[in-house]
Simulated scan of single mutants.
Amino acid sequence: MAITANDFWRLAGERAVRARGEIARRSALAREPRPEGVRAPPLRFLWGELASLRRGVRRSVGEPAKALRPQPIMLLPGFGAHPARMRPLANALRAAGHEVHEWGLGFNLGPTEQNFAFLMRRVGMLARQHQAPVALIGWSLGGLFAREIARRQQESVSCVITLGTPFSGSPRANNAWRAYQVITGHSVDAPPVECELRGKPPVPTIALWSPRDGVVHPRSAAGWPDERDRAVALRCTHLGFASAPEVSVEVLRQLDRV
């Protein structure tokens, strides 16, 4: 049935009203105050993140030692990042003999019921394909996905390694929560996927964190003893978790310990 001019302008007006309402809602999310007593990393570390962007991707140092026990691995990128940002880590893992897979969702623009269900299926498929559980390595927000997948699907996951992931304390103890709320359209306190951020997954769980992190507060990324099995400090930026050679070395070392 043909749409009349009146119908066209009525529909356009309704869309404009909805768009204005959505803009107003996301603007309100951006203006929310940080809770009393919650701290983010100091701004001088945030400027360090910008400097690391100018330096670009850092090359690995030398050929990594062969893995003691090669295993399938899935890498999960941080918020707003594409899997290509984790290529230096992926290359080091492959050079050591591991089977490395991307998460299959392109840019990480936050959780939805659909993309989380996809990841659950993908991890199960990889475990069946390799006839072995999969190691999940998640950078920042990707680590929250990894921890929750392991909590729900223990039989398909061998271990979880988080890289600067804010799994402990307040979800506002970082310098990215307002941007996250504007882009995803939901509060950090009310994700669209039910999850248990602080409870340790029922698999070996290692948290890599940095005192120089300019995005996530170190305490949030290190967690407490009952929230992970090990916490290892590295001296890289938050963005450096995707490409710093020392991160690749430590991830390989932890995989050999699992």
Rank of each mutant, 00 (worst) to 15 (best):
R44Q: 09
A51Q: 09
S52L: 00
G37R: 06
G37A: 02
W47A: 09
G56F: 06
P35F: 09
G62D: 06
E49M: 03
V61G: 02
R44V: 08
L50I: 12
S60E: 14
S60L: 14
G37C: 04
L46H: 01
E63R: 15
L50N: 01
P64K: 11
V38D: 10
G48M: 06
A40E: 12
W47Q: 01
L43E: 03
K66M: 05
G62S: 09
A40H: 06
W47T: 07
P64E: 10
G56S: 09
A40D: 05
P64N: 14
R39L: 13
A51H: 05
P35T: 05
K66A: 12
R54I: 04
K66H: 11
E49Y: 03
S52H: 10
K66R: 14
E36H: 10
E36D: 13
G37Q: 09
V38F: 06
G56W: 06
L53I: 15
R44E: 09
V57E: 11
A51E: 09
F45K: 14
W47E: 01
A65E: 15
G56P: 04
R39V: 10
L50C: 02
R55D: 07
R59A: 15
V38Y: 06
L50T: 03
P42S: 13
E63F: 04
P64D: 11
W47M: 06
